[in-house]
Amino acid sequence: MNILDDLKLQYKIGGISLRLIYWNIACFLISLVFFYQYSGGGFDYPNWLELSSDPQVFIFKPWTFLTYAFFHSSFLHLLFNMMVLNFASQLFLTFFTQKQYLGLYILGAVFTGIIFSFSFYFLNISAPIVGASGAIMAILVAATTYQPLMNVRLLLIGNVKLWHITGVILILDLMQLRLDNTGGHISHLAGAFFGFAYIKLLQNGTDLSIIVSKILDFFANLFKKSQTTPFKKVHKNYKKPTEKTTSRIVTKDKTQQQIDEILDKISQSGYDCLTKEEKEFLFKAGK
């Protein structure tokens, strides 16, 4: 089995978490081909992919509240996010389903994008953002909120509580909020809040991921090929139309009425008083 076949097999059996990693890597590779500026050494994403804080842009391109979460600004940006995503995915999927995982990732990305856009708008800052970190933080904090005392073994450190790891990441975001990459830190904190809120609502009986599941199921059923039944030739036996029963009844009634009138005439005046036509009619009716 070659490397390509191995990757296909892993994608097929790896579950939704591995597929999300593959999708992010694929988008990064596409970015290198179409959006990387080799002269400037950076990415130049179009405003129909990246998320802008300018209302005149994102209002007319609402899909960017999701697409931005599949593109990254550098290889290190992608590498760090995918490492954290892989770590958070294993924790989250220990307790929840893959549909809940995908729903939380998508909703976390959308919520994070909304908070980023409105925060920068009120701060009077116009800037774009790309990256999956907000959605990843939603998954990490959701797992931490549900099982904060879970032991996690870290290399060179040993066993630590899950909430210790998540707490350190959030503290670093708060400390650097006004120093560098403000939009990135806002998205991290927004994703963390959404992950916390998701678990609290889930514990109260409200699963927000059902929204995403229903939308995806709708489109899946919409594009599913409908099964067509083979054409069947239908043979119909031709039946000669029969006379209507009502017409026979009417004819019989008129004939009988005429016979009765002739018989009355005979009883009153005798047979000789009948006309030639009446005699012939009576003779035919008696056959």
Rank of each mutant, 00 (worst) to 15 (best):
C27T: 08
L7W: 06
L29D: 03
T64D: 00
H72G: 04
V33F: 12
Y22T: 00
S74Q: 05
D5E: 15
M1D: 11
L79I: 12
V84W: 06
L18Y: 14
M83C: 14
F71Q: 03
K12Y: 11
F43W: 09
L78I: 00
I21E: 06
H77F: 15
Y22N: 00
Y11S: 10
Q37K: 12
D54W: 02
L66C: 06
L7D: 00
F65L: 11
V57D: 03
N24M: 14
F80R: 09
K12A: 11
Q37H: 13
L7Q: 08
L29K: 06
S52E: 02
L32S: 04
K12F: 06
L32A: 02
F60E: 12
F75Q: 10
G41Y: 05
F34M: 10
G40D: 14
S74L: 03
F58K: 00
Y22F: 10
F80Q: 09
Y38A: 11
G15A: 02
H72T: 07
I21V: 14
E50G: 04
N24F: 09
L32P: 05
I30N: 05
K61F: 04
Y45G: 09
G42T: 13
F58N: 01
I16N: 10
F35K: 03
T64Y: 03
I3H: 07
V33L: 13
Q37R: 11
L49Q: 05
F60D: 09
P46N: 05
S52A: 02
T64S: 00
D44V: 13
A69N: 09
G14P: 09
F60C: 06
D5R: 13
D5C: 09
W63H: 11
F35R: 01
I21Y: 08
H77G: 11
A69W: 10
G41E: 08
L78T: 01
G40R: 09
F71C: 00
G14Y: 10
W23K: 05
N47G: 05
L9Y: 15
R19N: 13
T64A: 01
S53F: 00
L32I: 12
H77M: 07
Y45D: 07
F35H: 05
L51D: 01
V84C: 06
I3V: 08
G15L: 04
F58L: 04
S39H: 04
D44Q: 14
L76S: 12
F60A: 12
Q56D: 12
K61H: 13
S73E: 13
K12S: 15
F60H: 15
H77C: 07
Y68M: 02
N47T: 12
W23I: 15
F75V: 14
G41L: 06
L76A: 12
C27W: 04
H77K: 07
S17Q: 14
M1F: 08
L78N: 03
M83T: 15
L76I: 14
I16Y: 09
D5Y: 13
L9C: 10
S17T: 14
N47D: 09
A69G: 07
W23M: 11
F43Y: 12
Y22H: 02
I30C: 13
F71S: 01
F34C: 13
